[in-house]
Design a protein around this nucleic acid. Structure first.
Ligand SMILES: [Mn+2]
Ligand SMILES: [Mn+2]
Ligand SMILES: [Zn+2]
Ligand SMILES: [Zn+2]
Lengths: 134, 134
DNA sequence: TAATAGTTTTAGAATTAGTCTAAGCACCAT
DNA sequence: ATGGTGCTTAGACTAATTCTAAAACTATTA
C-alpha cells in the first residue's frame, strides 16, 4: 500500500509533512468534512499545522486532481477525496453526506428506487458553457 | 393581474411596503439573484429599505412558500421565485443560472441531449432522511 | 382618541468561512 | 556557506450572513 508521500510524489506535488498529514487524514475518509474539520482533526495529531496551510493544501491537492470540493452545504465547502464522478445524498436531519452512484438515473428514478432513504428533494445542477459563452 | 400585496395577503404574510417591494422585484425575475443583489436593486427604487430587512423578508417569503433559496454557488445563496420543482444550469464562464426542466433525465441524458450547451459537469444532490434518521 | 402590545424595520455589531500578506523556514543547487 | 524558490505561519482582512437592541409601525383595546 502506498504512503501519502508516495501519492503526492506520483502527482508531482512536493512532499511536506503538512501535506502528507492532510492527505493521510482525507484518504479513505467518507465524511465529506469541511476544511475547518480537516484542520481540527489533523491539528490534534500534528499540532504544528496551521489553518492557512490546510486551506492551501486542499487547493493544491484539488489542482493535482487528488481531491474535489463539493457543493452540498451553503455556508461551508466540503472536501471529498473521492474524485470519481458521483452524486451525493445529504440527510436533512443529521447532515451526513453519502456518495451515490453516477448512474443513469432520473430524478424520479432516484426518488422511487432508493428504498433505504426517504427522499425529500432532488437537486441537479448542470455546469458548462451557455450559448453565448462557448 | 395580482399585485405583490395581494400575493402576500393570499399567503397570510402581513403586507409592508418593504415586503411588497422585494416581492415585486423578484416576481418574474429569472436571474437567481443573491440577497445582496436583491438589496441593491430594490434599494435603488426604495432607498429606505435596509439590508437586514431584505434578508428577513427573503426568510419570511421562503417560509411562506413564495421563494426558494438555491444552492448553486458556494459563497452566496441565490434566490428563486420559481418554487416549482426544477433543476439548474450554471454557465462556468458568465455565471448565468438558467432553469432546467425537472424532467426524467439522466446525468448522461443531460450531457448528450443539451445541444445548446456544452456540459462540463452534472451534480446531483439528493436530500432526505437516512436509514438512521427516518 | 390614547394607551398598549405585538410586529417589523433598522443600523451597526458580531460571527464565520475563507483569502491575503509579509515574515520566517526548509530544501536544493551552486 | 549562500542564494533562490517555494512552503508555512499568525494574524489581518473580506464578504456573506446573523444577531441585537432600539425605533417605528400596526392593530387592538379601553
Ligand atoms: Mn463524495
Ligand atoms: Mn430556478
Ligand atoms: Zn441522518
Ligand atoms: Zn455564459
Amino acid at each position: 500500500m502506498k504512503t501519502p508521500a508516495q501519492h503526492l510524489t506520483e502527482k508531482s506535488v512536493k512532499v511536506t509533512a503538512q501535506r502528507a498529514a492532510v492527505l493521510e487524514f482525507l484518504q479513505g475518509n467518507r465524511d465529506h468534512p469541511s476544511p475547518d474539520e480537516v484542520y481540527r482533526k489533523v491539528h490534534k495529531r500534528f499540532p504544528y499545522i496551521s489553518r492557512a496551510t490546510v486551506y492551501n493544501t486542499i487547493k493544491t491537492l484539488v489542482k493535482a486532481g487528488m481531491l474535489q470540493e463539493v457543493l452540498i452545504q451553503q455556508d461551508k465547502t466540503r472536501v471529498d477525496p473521492n474524485v470519481s464522478q458521483h452524486h451525493h445524498f445529504k440527510c436533512l436531519r443529521c447532515g451526513t453526506v453519502k456518495d451515490m452512484p453516477y448512474a443513469l438515473m432520473t430524478a424520479d428514478h432516484v426518488r422511487k428506487s432508493l428504498k433505504n432513504y426517504q427522499v425529500k428533494e432532488v437537486r441537479m445542477v448542470v455546469e458548462g458553457l451557455c450559448k453565448q459563452c462557448r
